[in-house]
Simulated assay, not measured.
Amino acid sequence: MEKLKIVGCNSLVALEGAQSLGSLRVMSRVLDWKRFGSTDYYFLTVSFCKHLTSLQRLVLDRSWYFDEDINVSGGLTWEQALQLLTSLQELFGYCRGLSDLPVGLHSLPLLKRLEIIDCPSISSLPESGLPPSLEDLEVRDCSEELTEQCRMLATSKLTAIIDGRYVY
């Protein structure tokens, strides 16, 4: 299996058979906006993430109807998950309730694309910065502070798309 998309599952606690996910390259979790209640990322456990050795693209999608932060307290912290997901090349966060980007974001050695969409509570990039491998950064519908900080990062090596416009 190369792609896994989890749709409308509000109480996913674990994914069984994680050992068979070694070839998984794309994983996304899209929550059904019609379902309300507790939504979490408890499945991001050490045993699960250790099997995602080929994961290149991770999409974390939260309906804008939810305001709470992504909760990984039952599993791993963002930093712990990122330490295990070192094959990531693309990370997409559509998370209205997310208040901070993971501190360990800079430690993803292969990350080439980062999208931060509809995250108005995030006011800045992590102090440790972004990975040197990053080539594409897209920021849309975020705070003015984050938007301006990302606008300043545009270089010949890093393409920045801010609110739908290329920044050079």
Rank of each mutant, 00 (worst) to 15 (best):
E2T: 09
E2N: 09
E2C: 00
V7E: 10
G8H: 02
N10Y: 04
N10E: 12
N10W: 03
A14I: 04
A14G: 02
A18I: 05
A18Y: 11
Q19S: 14
S23K: 15
R25I: 11
S28K: 13
D32G: 00
W33E: 15
K34E: 12
K34Q: 14
R35E: 06
R35K: 15
F36R: 15
S38W: 05
F43G: 00
S47K: 13
L52W: 02
L58T: 01
D61M: 07
E68M: 13
E68C: 13
D69W: 03
G74W: 09
G75A: 03
L76K: 07
T77Q: 02
T77R: 01
W78P: 01
E79S: 14
A81V: 01
A81S: 11
L82V: 01
Q83H: 10
L88H: 06
E90T: 11
F92T: 08
C95L: 14
G97F: 06
L98D: 06
L98F: 05
P102M: 03
G104V: 00
S107H: 00
S107A: 10
P109S: 06
P109K: 04
L110S: 07
R113H: 08
E115C: 09
I116G: 05
I116P: 07
I117Y: 14
P120W: 05
S121C: 02
L125V: 03
P126F: 05
S128I: 08
G129K: 02
P132H: 10
L137H: 02
C142M: 09
E144R: 13
L146P: 01
Q149N: 06
L153E: 08
A154G: 06
A154H: 05
S156F: 00
K157D: 09
L158D: 08
L158I: 09
T159F: 03
A160Q: 10
A160C: 15
I162V: 15
Y166I: 01
Y168D: 03
